[in-house]
Design a protein around this nucleic acid. Structure first.
Lengths: 171, 171
DNA sequence: CAGTATATGTCAAACTACTGACATGAGTCA
DNA sequence: TGACTCATGTCAGTAGTTTGACATATACTG
């Protein structure tokens, strides 16, 4: 083009490619989850609870990359559907531990299988060593973007100080 | 973090890590673009037009990973702000070529610099060879998810048949 | 040529997720 | 103890996107 150095070369920009890959994955996940009557965040919430029972609303929000407000409305819906149960009162602080019900586990089981298929499709052409490599590279990108050098674990809410987590999530 | 760390795949799931990286990038981009009064899609639209002048609404939508309806409302806003101009009538078919105005180019220049900084931050700890590797891996994932083996170029709307592009975009 | 399928532009309605705001619980520090 | 800071839950309003629908333009098919 004419004007000097324009901007970013989209075709080779890793930021753009990252977005493209995430977008493709998102579409594929939506496509398999929709017939099950679930959104991606809905699925993510269930999966998180299956692997870490007792997570609070805020912790689930961080794990699903949405705001705690968004997760809150979702959680209320899931509770109405009897897919999860929340403690009536907080054991400590204000955080209310949440857990899956048997019904929630059943729904998750179906969804989880579908999601796994999508992920395997995505990695169909990658060797195991390449998958490891990709994990390493993505982790490096995440770390660089999240600045604070250490931790920020899903379940370490209070201890860390002086660093304020970025408010906005995804997508 | 007392509950027995159920070995979760989330921490090693490439799908999850991809989402995490995209989410972190999205947040970082939003943070630098917001002070400029731009959204990510807004920026993406301008950047696309800078590199491929004459792109239509639908082509811009695909390039920015949103629906053509979303891009349409954005384009109308950008046109009102005199950042872009659209052809009054289609040279062929219904597609209306769009181009940046001088004003649009000026706005893009500032945003592009900010975005470049974010991307460089993200890649700060990666060697060039690792960046190439990452490009290759992401490209493979995108290809696997998009199924149809070939093409699907940003500017090949009509030729391809028998394959319907996935409707939903991103993020 | 008629019929069908694909692309595109655009309006309107519905939704999802975010921002803003406020109150509550807990830890830190002087 | 009291002031301050931080994390959390939750309600209300809003912005950005998607879904749905329809008209129109082109290209393929038989």
């Amino acid at each position: 083009m004419s004007q000097g150095e324009p901007g970013i070369e989209l075709d080779t920009s890793l930021g753009y490619m990252l977005k493209a890959a995430a977008s493709a994955l998102h579409s594929a996940l939506e496509a398999v989850l929709r017939p099950l009557g679930m959104t991606i965040t809905h699925y993510a919430c269930l999966e998180l609870l299956a692997q870490r029972p007792g997570l609070s609303n805020s912790e689930l929000a961080r794990g699903a990359f949405v705001t705690r407000q968004s997760m809150n409305v979702l959680l209320q819906a899931l509770e109405r559907q009897r897919l999860v149960v929340r403690a009536a009162q907080a054991p400590v602080g204000r955080a209310l531990p949440t857990e899956l019900t048997a019904r929630g586990r059943r729904q998750l089981k179906v969804a989880s299988a579908a999601v796994r298929r999508v992920e395997q499709d995505m990695l169909a052409n990658l060797e195991f060593s390449e998958q490891d490599q990709m994990r390493r590279l993505l982790a490096a990108c995440i770390a660089s973007l999240t600045e604070p050098p250490a931790s920020a674990s899903l379940t370490s809410p209070s201890v860390r100080r002086g660093w304020r987590r970025r408010r906005r999530p995804e997508f």
